Computed example of a mutant assay.
Amino acid sequence: MTTVVQADAVSASAAGPVPITEPGIYNMANETYHSHRYALSSSGARKLIEASPAHFRYEQDHPQPVKKVWDIGNAAHRLVLGNGPELRLVDYERWDTKDAKAEVAEARAEGAVPLKRADWDQVHEMADVLRRHPVASLLFDPEHGTPERSLFWHDAPTGVMRRARLDWLPNPRTGRLIIPDYKTCRSAHPEKLQKAIEEFGYHQQDDTYRSACHALGIADQDAAFVFVCQEKTPPYVITVIEVNATARRIGAARNRRALETFAHCTATGYWPGYSDDVVPVALPGWAETRDSLEYL
């Protein structure tokens, strides 16, 4: 097992984080992890090929501020994993009053997640349901793992530094390691989750995390990677899924293209948009059929 490097060895300075050059498992705050933008993450790889290198570069240079819509997911993660920002109940019927606004602003300024009473009850109920689930409760058993570890490693073909932040790192053991990732969702129905794999690039995340575990010797054989998906509305149903072999191969191929693009753009300093050539563009198929019948 690769040694865990403690947070004080990798903390960010006013000028930004000290670049990590040695592959390893690092114990750092979430904000510090995301500040290491020279290392390619799974979400960065998706942006490179689903949008363009220019979009990727802009988002890296202009990090998104915290959004309120993330509060439920962040709060649920905190309760399930036992790690993350403090949850703070702002117990007012309305949040548009002066006192409520002041408490919300104070909480966010201190890095806490402010929650209304209904949201507070919701995330605690979600965590209670998970603890009663026969599989999910074992996957996130605090006696058999550690929450939120940051992994850094080099991609051998390109030399690119890669990064991944595991929701949960199981304790070392013999045999196949099962690494879980917690997702909140609108629907945990397997058919809906098929669409989520494509929409959110879970197959690329799967390949990224497997690659990290292999590169860092976390498991003595290929690790299993599963998503624990929980609905955000009662009864907070949970479905545990594993991406199949075909989807994993596609995810790996997409990641490989992203890594090659990242390496090339980094070397040249040029981050193009969709295309530098003149692109021929046709009418939408339905409009072409309609107007061809009418006018041609």
Rank of each mutant, 00 (worst) to 15 (best):
A156W: 10
P157C: 00
P157F: 03
T158D: 11
T158A: 10
T158E: 12
G159H: 09
G159F: 10
V160W: 07
V160E: 14
R162C: 15
R163K: 14
A164P: 01
A164E: 13
L166V: 06
D167A: 05
D167H: 13
W168Y: 12
L169E: 01
L169R: 12
P170V: 01
P170G: 02
N171L: 14
N171D: 12
P172D: 07
P172N: 09
P172T: 01
R173L: 10
R173T: 07
R173W: 05
T174C: 02
T174S: 12
T174Q: 12
T174Y: 06
G175H: 15
G175C: 12
G175Y: 13
G175L: 11
R176M: 08
R176N: 02
R176Q: 14
I178F: 04
I178T: 15
P180H: 02
D181H: 14
K183A: 08
T184V: 15
C185L: 13
C185Q: 10
R186Q: 08
A188V: 06
A188N: 11
A188R: 07
A188Q: 07
H189M: 07
H189Y: 08
P190C: 07
E191N: 14
L193T: 00
L193H: 04
L193I: 06
L193A: 05
L193K: 01
Q194F: 04
K195A: 06
K195R: 12
I197Y: 09
E198W: 13
E198F: 15
E199P: 00
E199N: 05
F200T: 00
F200A: 03
G201E: 06
H203E: 12
H203V: 04
D206I: 01
D206H: 15
D206F: 15
D206G: 00
D207R: 15
Y209M: 12
R210W: 04
S211F: 04
A212N: 06
C213N: 03
H214G: 00
A215V: 08
L216D: 09
G217H: 06
A219L: 00
D220R: 05
Q221N: 06
Q221G: 13
Q221I: 02
D222C: 02
A223Y: 13
F225W: 11
F225R: 07
F225K: 09
V226K: 04
F227D: 04
F227V: 03
F227Q: 10
V228R: 10
V228S: 11
